[in-house]
Structures are given as structure tokens and as C-alpha cells.
């Protein structure tokens, strides 16, 4: 029994991991773009972006999942997500990417705006381009500063992936819960908790390592 539960949960957790990794792959860069939009001195860009962030951060992720999955089919009379498991997974991924990009964008914005203007000016008077200033001087300082809030958000993401079950993405908790019906046992549910604990433990170690790695310099 233990073995078959472990195998079932592993299958579910693989889906959880896939959602987690792909969400990060897309939302980390997209969040940076959104943060640039929210900082631009261009009203026609800045205010719509800020409005969008407000909507996404101000409504439950659960609601966004439902709207993104069912919305197109009902409004456009056409299921844009494709059928079956992969269609539901894609819809869940899109919802997660949009949601997390917005949260990340605010973390980036805080980090970028906390870098003293003197760092940009020093780069400018040395004849560097805006691009060089951002990538060679500013970015690493921003990364160092945002590791603590980022690690918070990313650990939250591991657990938020469980929300995808609302549109029947078979992640680990779904698998664990199925044993209540099929075998009348509750312990597989506790077992799923262990998966999350171990994974977030690993992430904590990873972020601790990154923080230490960047400890060789100090920002003002």
C-alpha cells in the first residue's frame, strides 16, 4: 500500500513541480517587463499596468483560474485551451504566470527603486549605455536586495500550485485525496504535506546559499 501511495503521489507531485518550474520560467522575466511598465514615465503605459496589477493582486488566484479556464469557452464559444489534461494544465499555467508576474513585478520595482540614483549617474558619466548600466551595475544589486521577498513569494508558489486542482489539474493533493474515496484512508493526505515540507526546505537552503553567495558585497 505504502509503495502504491508513494508512486501515485510522486506522479501528482511531478505535475506540481512542472507547474512550479514553468510558472517561474515565464513569470520571472515577465514580471521584470511589467515592473518596467509600472515605472515608465508614460501615463498611457504606467496607469493601465498599475490597474492590471491591482486587479490581479486584488482578486483570488482561485477566481482567476476559473475565469481563465472557463471564460474563453463560455464567452467565445470556443475552448482555446484544447481538450483533456494538457488543456487544463495550460490554462492553469497561464493563470499562474499572470498572477505571479504581477507579484514579482512589485518586488522588482521595490528593488530597482531602492538603488541609489548615484549608481546610475556614476555609470552615465563613465559613458555606459542604459543597457550596460542596468545589466552590469544595477541588476546584481537588485537581485541581492530582493532575495528575501522573492524566496517568500516562491515558497508561497509551491503551495499555491495546489489551487490548480479546482480545474482538475491532477497535482499531488488531488492524488492524496483520491485515496479517501478509493481506500478510506487519510494518511496519504498527511504524506502530501511531507512532499511540500521537503521541497520548501530545499528551496530555503537554496535561497540561503544564494544570499551567502552575494554576501561578498554590501549595498548602501
Amino acid at each position: 500500500m505504502f509503495l502504491s501511495v508513494t508512486l501515485a503521489l510522486l506522479t501528482g507531485f511531478l505535475n506540481t513541480l512542472k507547474l512550479f518550474v514553468l510558472t517561474l520560467v515565464f513569470s520571472l522575466p515577465l514580471g521584470l517587463l511589467i515592473s518596467f511598465g509600472s515605472m515608465k514615465n508614460l501615463r498611457i503605459l504606467k496607469y493601465p499596468v498599475k490597474f492590471f496589477i491591482w486587479i490581479i493582486r486584488g482578486t483570488p488566484l482561485m477566481l482567476q483560474l476559473l475565469v481563465i479556464y472557463y471564460g474563453p469557452g463560455i464567452i467565445l464559444k470556443h475552448n482555446i485551451w484544447g481538450s483533456g489534461d494538457s488543456g487544463r494544465f495550460t490554462a492553469a499555467l497561464v493563470a499562474f504566470v499572470i498572477n505571479y508576474s504581477c507579484y514579482f513585478s512589485e518586488i522588482y520595482r521595490g528593488g530597482i527603486q531602492s538603488i541609489p540614483v548615484g549608481q546610475y549617474e556614476a555609470g552615465q558619466v563613465l559613458g555606459l549605455t542604459k543597457r550596460q548600466i542596468f545589466f552590469k551595475i544595477i541588476l546584481l544589486q537588485v537581485i541581492k536586495r530582493i532575495i528575501p521577498p522573492m524566496s517568500n513569494e516562491i515558497i508561497t508558489l509551491t503551495k499555491d500550485t495546489s489551487l490548480a486542482r479546482i480545474i482538475a489539474v491532477y497535482e499531488v493533493i488531488w492524488e492524496g485525496q483520491s485515496f479517501i474515496k478509493s481506500a478510506g484512508i487519510i494518511w496519504p493526505l498527511f504524506y502530501t504535506g511531507a512532499f511540500y515540507l521537503i521541497f520548501s526546505g530545499l528551496l530555503t537552503l537554496l535561497f540561503g546559499y544564494a544570499e551567502k553567495k552575494l554576501g561578498y558585497f554590501q549595498t548602501k
Binding site: 549608481q119 556614476a122 558619466v125 551595475i137 544589486q141 561578498y216
Partner: peptide
């Protein structure tokens, strides 16, 4: 021109 700032503005990394 070169400019030396009051607050140094060295790149910390």
C-alpha cells in the same frame, strides 16, 4: 569630462 561625486558612488559588487 570625468566626474568625482561627493558620495563616491563606487559599484559595490
Amino acid at each position: 569630462f570625468g566626474l568625482v561625486f561627493q558620495s563616491f558612488n563606487l559599484f559595490p559588487q
